[in-house]
Amino acid sequence: MELNLVTVLVAFAGVFLICFMKGAFGGGFAIVGIPLLSTVMDPVTAGGLLAPLFVAMDLFSLRYWKPSTWSKPDLRLLVPGLVVGIGAGYLLFRVLDHRAIAILMAAITLVFVGLWFARGGEVVVRPRSSPKAIAAGVTSGITTMVAHSGGPPLAMYLLPLGLSKQVYAGTTSLFFTVGNLLKAAPWLLLAKPTGTVWSLMAICLLAIPSGVWLGWRLHARLDQRQLYTACYGLLVITAIKLLWDGVSGYLGS
C-alpha cells in the first residue's frame, strides 16, 4: 500500500464514517465504512489497520455510553459467546470460506429484516432467551473476526427485546468494545501491519473524536422509532454489502 494523499483521505473518510456509526448506534455497523477502505487497500491490510482503531473508537465511545446504558443481563449472556466465537474465528480464519459465510449471513439478515417489514415496521417484543443470546454472541464473534461484520447477529437478538434507544446503543457499544479488544491482537498477527500502515493508523486516530461526537448528536435527535428504523435500514445495507462480497468473490475466482 502506497501512502499518498488519496490513500490518506479515503482511509480517513472510512474511519470517520465508522466512528459516526459508533456514536449514533453504539457499533455493529463498521462494515459500512469498509468499502471506502477497500478502494485503496486489500481486505487483510484494512483489517490490520482497523483492529487497533476499533479499540480506540470504542474506548472513546464509552465516554457517551456509560454503564447506565448497558443491559447487563443481556451482556452476561452475550459476552461469553462472543469470546468463544472470536477464538473459533481466529482458528478458522484461513480455512473458512469467507464468501459462503458472507452470503449466508446476508440471507439470514434479509429474512430477519423482511419479517420486520411484513409486520409493518413494528417491534414485537420478545422475552430474553439464553440460548438465543449465546448463539448470537458466538455467531457475532466468528463474523466479526473473519469479516468485521458482527453487527447483524447481535442486532437480530437485541432489536426484538424492545430496549430503549440508549440501552440498545450502550449495550451494543460495550459488546463491541470487548470484542474489538479481544480481536485486536489476533488481527495484528494475521495482518502484520507495515510502517506505512502504522503511520496511516496514527493519522486516522484524528477522525475518532469528531466522528463519534457527531454520531452521538444524531442519536440524541432520533426518537425510539426512528432509531430502530435506521438500524433495520442499516442491516439491509450491511446484508447487501455481504452478499456482494460473497457473490463477487465466487465470480472473480
Rank of each mutant, 00 (worst) to 15 (best):
R63E: 02
G33S: 09
P131Q: 11
F16D: 00
D42L: 11
A13V: 05
G120M: 07
G215T: 07
Y250I: 10
G33E: 10
G150F: 03
G48M: 03
L227R: 05
G26M: 11
M105Y: 01
P35N: 06
P80Y: 03
A46Y: 11
G141P: 06
L50C: 02
L92Y: 04
S61Y: 04
E2I: 13
S248V: 14
G28K: 07
H219A: 14
M156G: 13
V125I: 12
P131A: 09
G170Y: 01
G81S: 04
T69P: 01
F16N: 09
S199K: 14
G162I: 02
V15S: 01
F20L: 13
C19H: 09
Y232D: 00
T144L: 09
S61C: 09
G23K: 02
V83T: 14
I203C: 02
S199I: 07
A51P: 07
A13G: 11
M57Y: 05
T229G: 02
L3K: 12
V146N: 06
A169G: 10
K241N: 13
A169S: 15
V178K: 03
H148C: 00
L200E: 04
V212M: 08
M105A: 13
G114W: 03
G23P: 04
F54V: 03
V8N: 02
G215C: 06
L200G: 04
S173C: 13
C231N: 14
R94L: 12
C231R: 07
A118G: 03
L251E: 05
I34C: 07
P127G: 11
W70C: 03
T69W: 00
S140H: 06
Q226E: 14
L189G: 01
V236K: 08
G252T: 15
F16S: 10
T194V: 01
A24C: 15
L82S: 10
P186V: 02
F29Q: 05
V6S: 14
A191W: 06
N4H: 15
P160S: 06
Q224V: 00
V113Y: 05
P131D: 10
T139K: 02
T45F: 05
A106G: 10
I108Y: 13
S253E: 12
F20H: 03
V197L: 14
T143R: 04
T177Y: 02
S173H: 07
A191G: 07
K132A: 15
G114E: 09
A88C: 13
W244F: 14
L49M: 13
